[in-house]
Write a protein that binds this DNA or RNA. Structure first.
Lengths: 255, 255
DNA sequence: CGAGCCGTTCTTCAGAGCAGAACGGATAAA
DNA sequence: TTTATCCGTTCTGCTCTGAAGAACGGCTCG
C-alpha cells in the first residue's frame, strides 16, 4: 500500500506540499511564510512557486501567492472519466430534491470509499465530505455497501490491510462482527449506518456493482437521525434509494 | 504574464506532465506509453509515477497507472475558499431548474473568465465548459459582464494583454467596438452573447462586482438559440438572471 | 521453446536544485 | 528625514538528486 518509492522525486514532493499549502490556506500566502510551512529555504519555495505559476496552478496577487482555479480542472477531468458519475449525477440531484436530504455517490479506490458526488440537502447541511477524500469503508453506509458487494476473499484482504478505526462509539471495530453485518447487507441489498462516522448522522446506501469496466460504487442518502428514522427511513427512504440505484444500473447497462 | 521562471524546477514540470497525461487518458496507462508521451525515459516516468502514487494522486491498477480521485480534493478545497461560489451555488441550481437551461458562475482570474460552477440544463446538454478552465473574457456573456464591471484602465490593460481570438464569425475582435459594447453592458447591467463562442449558443449574464474581498464574478444562463430568443430571452430570462444576481449580492453583503 | 514486451531495478555521472548570502524596494519607527 | 526591518527576488557555489540507459525477470504469443 504505502511502500515508499525506491527512487522518489523529492522536488515533486516539495511542489505538491507547496500546492497543498496554498490550496488549504485562506487567502494568499507570502514566500517566507510558505517556505517556513513547507520547511524549505525561501529561494526554493520561490522556485517552486514560479514553476507552478508557469504551469498555471498558482497565481500571484500582488506579492502574494494563491492556488489558481486550474486545480479544479484536474479533478473535473478525472471525474469526467467516471461513467458511474455521469449516469448517477442527475438522479442523485432528483433524489436529494425528493427527500430533502444529502445524497452521495461513493466509489471504491484503493481499499477506501471516495465520495465522487455529493448533492446537498435542502437546508444546505451535509456531512463534511470532501469529494475525492478517501474514507474508511467500514464507517458509513455506502462504504459497507461497497464492501458487501465484493467477494469474500477480497473483503478479507481489505479488512486485513485496513485499520478499523472508530470515529464514534457506534463504529463496528470487530472484523468478525463486520463480516456478519456485511453478509446481512448483501442479502438485503441495502446498508444502514447509524452514527458510525458522525454522531447523530444516519445513512442508507445500496451497492452499484461493477458493470463492464465501470467502478464499484454505492449510492446513498444521509441526514440527521431526528429526521431519518423509523418506518420513514426503513421503508420510504430505503425504497427510493433502491429504485434510484436500479435505474442507474439500467442506464449503465444500456450504454 | 508568461514570463518564464528564472530557476524552474524541471522535475515538477515533468510530474505535472505525467499527472495531466493520466488525467486526460481514458482508462489506465502503462509506463512505456506514458514515458513516450511525456518525452522522458522509462525509468524517469516510473520514478515520477511512484512519487505521485505515494502522494496519493496516482493509483496503480495491476501494472497500469491512472490518476486517482484525490485530484478532486485539490479543486474542491480551492472551490471551498471562494465565497461567491458558496453564496451562488444553490441559487444557480434553482435558476437552472426554473429555466430548464444551463446556468453558470464565472470568476475573474488572470485576465480570463473561469467557470467555477455549472448547473446543467434539463436535457443534460451544456456548452463544453470545464470548471477551472480559463476562457477569454470577450467571447461569452459572463466574461463581458466581468469586463464591463472593471475600471476603464483595467479594461484597457486586459485588452492590451489579450489576443482577441474569434471562435466564430460572430465574435467581436475589434477592441474599440468591444469597449463600446462594454459601455452598453455597464449601463444596462446585463450582457448578451449570441453565438460568439459556440455557434447557435446564446447567453445572458449579469456582473457580480467585488464585495469586500470576494472575487469579481458573473452569473449567467446559456442555451441553444432556438429556445432562447425574442422577448422570452430579453425579458423573462434576463429578469430572472438579474433577480438571482441581486439575491446573491444581498447574501454576500450580509455575511 | 524462444523472441519480444513491459514494468521494475541498478548504476553511473552531469547538472539540477538546494541553502545561504546579497540585493533592492517598501514600509515602519526614530 | 533618516534608519532599521522585512519581504520578495536574484545570485552563487557545492552536493547529491534525478536523469539516461542498460540489465533483470515475468509474462504472453508465435
Amino acid at each position: 500500500m504505502t511502500d515508499e518509492p525506491r527512487y522518489a522525486v523529492e522536488a515533486t514532493e516539495t511542489s505538491l506540499a507547496v500546492l497543498e499549502t496554498l490550496v488549504d490556506a485562506e487567502g494568499t500566502v507570502g514566500v517566507t511564510a510558505l517556505a517556513d510551512h513547507v520547511g524549505v529555504s525561501k529561494s526554493v519555495a520561490h522556485n517552486h512557486l514560479s514553476t507552478l505559476r508557469a504551469a498555471g496552478y498558482v497565481i500571484k496577487r500582488g506579492e502574494q501567492y494563491d492556488a489558481s482555479l486550474r486545480t479544479l480542472t484536474l479533478g473535473e477531468r478525472t471525474r469526467a472519466g467516471i461513467d458511474v458519475h455521469d449516469a448517477a449525477k442527475r438522479k442523485l440531484d432528483n433524489l436529494a430534491a425528493a427527500t430533502g436530504e444529502t445524497t452521495t455517490l461513493f466509489v471504491l479506490e484503493e481499499d477506501a470509499g471516495v465520495p465522487v458526488y455529493v448533492a446537498e440537502a435542502d437546508d444546505g447541511w451535509s456531512p463534511p465530505f470532501v469529494e475525492g477524500e478517501r474514507l474508511p469503508l467500514h464507517v458509513n453506509a455506502p462504504g459497507k455497501s461497497i464492501l458487501s458487494s465484493l467477494s469474500a476473499d477480497r473483503i478479507d484482504a481489505i479488512l486485513e490491510r485496513t485499520d478499523l478505526i472508530a470515529p464514534t462509539d457506534a463504529t463496528t471495530t470487530d472484523p468478525d462482527e463486520l463480516v456478519r453485518e456485511l453478509r446481512r447487507i448483501r442479502d438485503d441489498g441495502i446498508a444502514f449506518c447509524r452514527g458510525e462516522q458522525y454522531e447523530g448522522v444516519v445513512g442508507v446506501a445500496a451497492p452499484l456493482p461493477e458493470i463492464d469496466g465501470s467502478r464499484i460504487a454505492a449510492l446513498g442518502v444521509c441526514g440527521p437521525v431526528d429526521r431519518l428514522n423509523g418506518r420513514y427511513l426503513e421503508e420510504d427512504i430505503t425504497g427510493q434509494v433502491l429504485s434510484t440505484t436500479k435505474s442507474v444500473q439500467v442506464d449503465l447497462t444500456a450504454d
